[in-house]
Every structure is written in C-alpha cells, then in structure tokens.
Amino acid sequence: MAEPATARLVDAGARASLWLQPHRIGLIAVGVVLVVCAALFMRWDWLPNYYGLALEGIWRTLWILVVTCVLGFMLAVPIGLVQVTGPRWLSVPAYWFCTVIRGTPLLLQLWFLYYGLGSLFPQYPWIRESFLWPYLRQAWPYAVLSLTLSYAAYEGEVMRGAFAGVARGQLEAARAFGMSRWKVFRRIWLPQAIYRALPTLTGETVLQLKATPLVATITVVDIYAVASRVRQSTFIVYEPLLLLAVVYLCITGILVFAFRKLEARIPARLG
C-alpha cells in the first residue's frame, strides 16, 4: 500500500461526491423531514418507562443470535461433511435432517419442541428428577435448540456444497505428500470449505436475526416481545413497531459491516 495519502483522499472525495448526487440530497432531506415529523407528532412518552426493558430485550436478541449461530455452525460442519464423505448410516440421516428442517416452518418447529415435546416431558419421572429439569421447564432452552437446529440445517446444506466444491486434486496432492487423512481434513479440506462458505454466512446470519422474534411466541422476552408488550399495554400501535424496525435495521447494518471486515481480512482467492 504505497499509494500516496493525497491520492487516496482525492479518491474518497470523488466517491463521496459520486454518491451524494443532487437527487440524493433531496431524498435525504425528505427522510430528515419524515424523522422530525415522527419525533414531533408521534407519541414517544412511553419510551422512558420501557427503556430498561428494551435494552434487556436487545441484549437477549443478540445473545440468542450469537449463541445459536455459533452452535449451529459447529453442527453444520459435520452435517455437511458426512453428506459428502460419510457412511450411509450417517449421510442419510444428515440429508433428511436438512430436508425436514428446511421443508417446514421454523415457527412450527419451535412450537413442536416447546408445546409438543414440552408436554411429553412431565410424563416421565426420570426426566423430572434429572438435573436438566429446571432448564426444561423454562422457555429459552427450546428457543435456543430450535434456532440452532434451523441454522445447522441451512448452513449444513451450504457446507455440503462447500466440501464438495474443493477440488479433488488438492486433496490428492496432500495425500501424495504423506499427510494423514485427519491432517488432510484439518489443514486442507476444512479451511477451504469454510472460505467457500464464508460469503453465505452474512446472509444466513441476517436470516437468523430475522427469525429471532419467533421466540417471543413461546414467552421468551426479546426485543420484539418488548415492543408487543408496549403495544398491548399502551394501545400505541405504530411507534413501537417503527422503532423495532429501526433496531433490526441497525443490527443488520452492524452484522453486514462486521462480516465485510471479516471477509476482507481473509486473503484467500478461490478459483
């Protein structure tokens, strides 16, 4: 990066002026007017009362998002791998797992786990006596389980393609140099598959964010549930929903930005 600082500055300036065309200034002005009108003429007096709850809700939304994405991705790697190279007794169940989860609505899966399984558990005394019982009586483990499985299935499908897409010749070359099967997987196959899958991660994670409000239907209090509560107790309809949409837009924006930075740090060039 030996290019002179002035050149970069000029470049940035040119790009800014390219972006800030006259009609954009007009559109931004309209947007600002709309925001000011919303601030002045809509009702925001409920905001101080629910401020704390809203922050907690945002925190819980982010927490669920991060935990389920990380767990889901860890599951997705083996699910993708066994479908490419595994024995039939592993690849067939993995295939059907992906098909079933991707073929049914997440809301139904969530309700199936929470209401369906949840209603079966109390019938078995050994479950009631186990150390898990205090958790099984709460809602969030079901929410985390269901969102994790969903992410695992969608990303598992991506990982299957990513593993299959790595050129056979590279794996053969690694084996020809005397690498063990495990080493070939760890040093060559897995890194390349993950590089391949990276571009899809942004989209899948944004989709996962958009799925999180479903957990509100099984009594987990995320940011969506807070907005619903405001609507129900104050009968104010638009304001909490609009603010909610803005919150999701911001989180999406941060996610996209973070992933772009992450991708830029990975120098891999794939053919």
């Binding site: 009609h23 944004v206 958009k210 909610l244």
Partner: peptide, 22 residues
C-alpha cells in the same frame, strides 16, 4: 436515479427487518 434509490431502500429494508414486524 430517484426510482432506483427508492427501490434500493425498499429491498434493503424488507430484507433486513423480520417478516413478523413487517
């Protein structure tokens, strides 16, 4: 240009905000 920007706004917002909220 105006139509293009408005459409960009539409697709961006819809794809970033949960369906439930929309």
């Amino acid at each position: 240009p105006v139509l293009r920007d408005l459409l960009e706004l539409y697709t961006t917002i819809v794809r970033a905000v949960p369906e439930l909220v929309l």
